Computed example of a mutant assay.
Amino acid sequence: MSNAPITEIDIAAFTADPYPDLARMRAAAPITYVPQLGATLLTRRDDIHVQEKRTDVFSSEQPDGLMTLLMGENMMRKDGVAHLAERRILFPAVSPRTVQEHWKPVFETAANRVLDRLAPRGGCDLVTDYAMPVSAEALKAITGLVRMTPAEMDGASQAMIDGCANYAGNADVTRRCHAATALIDHHIDLMLSDPPPRSALAVQMQGGLAMTSIRANIKLVISGGQNEPRDAIAGTIWALLSHPEQLELIRQGMASYADAFAEYARWVSPIGMSPRRVARRDTVGGVTFEPGDRVFLMFGSAGRDEAHFQAADRFDIRRDTQAAISFGAGPHFCAGAAASRCLIAEIALPLAFRRLKNLRLAGDAPFSGWAFRGPTSVPVAWSL
């Protein structure tokens, strides 16, 4: 265990709103051990930005970690040559060029189909009725698991995310995660004989990856490619509707939906944490880490670091977000970043505001989570 100063938290309060505790950590103990999480947290942006790249110390290889045990050893749980080799094989499915030329029309068609069904209703829950199916349809295409329903895709992603954050060892959470991974394996098996061109399944098979790696990486893509875009779509729309003066900036051409998404991802990081295992003894910021220590890189805290963002608790789409590391900063920078930006900023946000006239909030939007964070419901209405 590291010799970091100890910070106690209330798990329920931290899940409901982690930002007050994270601000307290950044100010008083930016590298701190939290007994309730069984990990040492790095909370300042610059520490995370530097240490994430030092994979010889803060390793992604976690053979006994929850993600590896539940989902298999995917490329996110590998470093160095092993990680780079699998990332290169997957790249043709998610490259910026592939996204713009191949996936963007698919995303737009799917989002319009969802809106065709929603528009006559006059109201919905943005999370379940719009953001979820839009995100799921995009992910079905990218993974190649086109026979999954949106509900199956969303449920499998949530079950895996819950499993990977199940540090309390809840047996029901583990059971649901195993059921989700079995469902994904079933759908992989259905597509093995004819994987859709350019899909993650197709390019990995063409690249000669072992089937165990293909399965693990597909699960990784789902766990990182469904809930996070879903929550960012619904969350960014909520943020703009809650700050009408900022939405007006977009309408006047003084800002863009890309600005809104970048600011939302800084402000409410959909991926709030990434775990690491200490591979060798080292000292950072006066804290000595021992081999085997569990470390959490708190991206949700980095986005509100006062050293880089003035009035960091305020949503402001005019802000310079260049210092934000919402998609990571090191060799594990999110491989799906281009697809996420395209789906959210170029398709889901503008289409929602264009097609749902006089879109407005119709109730409270509760948020939850610290490792993964987003709204659990965003009720809205619009004019018919």
Rank of each mutant, 00 (worst) to 15 (best):
Pro5Val: 13
Ala381Gly: 11
Phe315Lys: 11
Arg77Pro: 07
Cys124Thr: 10
Ala179Asp: 14
Val295Pro: 08
Ser60Tyr: 01
Phe309Gly: 07
Ser213Thr: 11
Gly235Thr: 00
His49Asp: 07
Asp47Lys: 10
Ala23Glu: 14
Ala232Arg: 03
Arg304Lys: 08
Glu108Trp: 00
Pro197Leu: 06
Asn358Cys: 07
Asp259Pro: 06
Ala151Tyr: 04
Pro375Asn: 06
Ser340Leu: 08
Ala180Arg: 09
Arg215Gly: 01
Arg251His: 13
Ala258Thr: 12
Arg230Glu: 11
Ala171Val: 14
Pro120Asn: 08
His178Arg: 15
Pro18Tyr: 12
Asp21Asn: 03
Gly272Pro: 05
Phe309Cys: 09
His308Ile: 02
Ala216Asn: 00
Asp316Trp: 09
Pro379His: 07
His308Gly: 00
Gly144Ile: 04
Asp162Asn: 11
Leu192Asp: 11
Arg319Trp: 07
His308Pro: 00
Phe309Gln: 12
Ala348Met: 08
Ala311Ile: 09
Ile31Lys: 05
Ala39Trp: 05
Gln62Leu: 09
His186Thr: 10
Asp21Phe: 11
Phe315Cys: 05
Ala324Cys: 10
Val99His: 09
Pro331Val: 12
Met132Ile: 05
Val114Phe: 15
Thr109Met: 02
Arg230Gln: 05
Ala111Pro: 01
Val81Ala: 15
Glu248Ile: 03
Arg113His: 14
Tyr19Phe: 15
Arg294Pro: 01
Ser223Gln: 09
His243Gln: 10
Leu359Met: 10
Thr55Pro: 01
Gly225Asp: 05
Glu290Gly: 01
Tyr257Ala: 12
Ala234Ile: 04
Ser2Ala: 12
Phe261Leu: 15
Phe367Pro: 03
Ile325Tyr: 00
Ile9Trp: 03
Phe315His: 10
Val81Glu: 13
Gly286Glu: 11
Val380Ala: 14
Pro5Cys: 07
His178Gln: 11
Ile317Arg: 09
Ala312Met: 01
Thr376Ile: 12
Phe91Cys: 00
Arg266Ile: 13
Ala255Asn: 07
Trp370Glu: 08
Pro30Thr: 06
Leu220Trp: 10
Met211Asn: 08
Gln206Ala: 15
